[in-house]
Amino acid sequence: MAALLIDYAAAGDLLDEPTLELSERAARRSLLDQIGQLDRLLSAAVCEAFPDRLELPELMPRGPRVQSLGELELLRDGLVGSLREARSALAAREQERALAHELLTEMLRDPAKHRRLRITQRELGVGGCGVWSVAPRLGPMGRLMGWWRVKLSSGCPLAT
């Protein structure tokens, strides 16, 4: 992310008024564009996270009014922070899903070793309310004989 920093105290001696005004206008334009772009990236992250909800930090409301250059910079920095958090939350979720997939593969390969394990479709990043778990074949007999298999429960629970 590029940032344009202007030291006005120092620049004031070197630049005449119209030049300074043009510089500030260019800086404001750049910041406004960056804010718009960051909001679009943040929106994309929120949509990617759906149906999970991303917990993003709340930005201090200061409007509706034209923001000062300093406020625009703060806003831009806040959005950069929010985007970083959103992306790390998405990356963490991807990691958890990959782990859940690995566990499911293990579970399918050797059900007996994973008798207490339950993996939800949600943990796998798949829609629906199903749960993968290990159950004995033929009920108590299977339990005694060690005949284990992996089952996927069907559907969502009925609304009460």
């Binding site: 709340e58 409007g63 923001q67 625009l72 806003l75 959005l79």
Partner: peptide, 12 residues
């Protein structure tokens, strides 16, 4: 949404 951000309103 972008405009809300630019004028200091958090659209979330």
């Amino acid at each position: 949404r972008s405009f809300y951000r630019q004028i200091g309103i958090d659209p979330d």
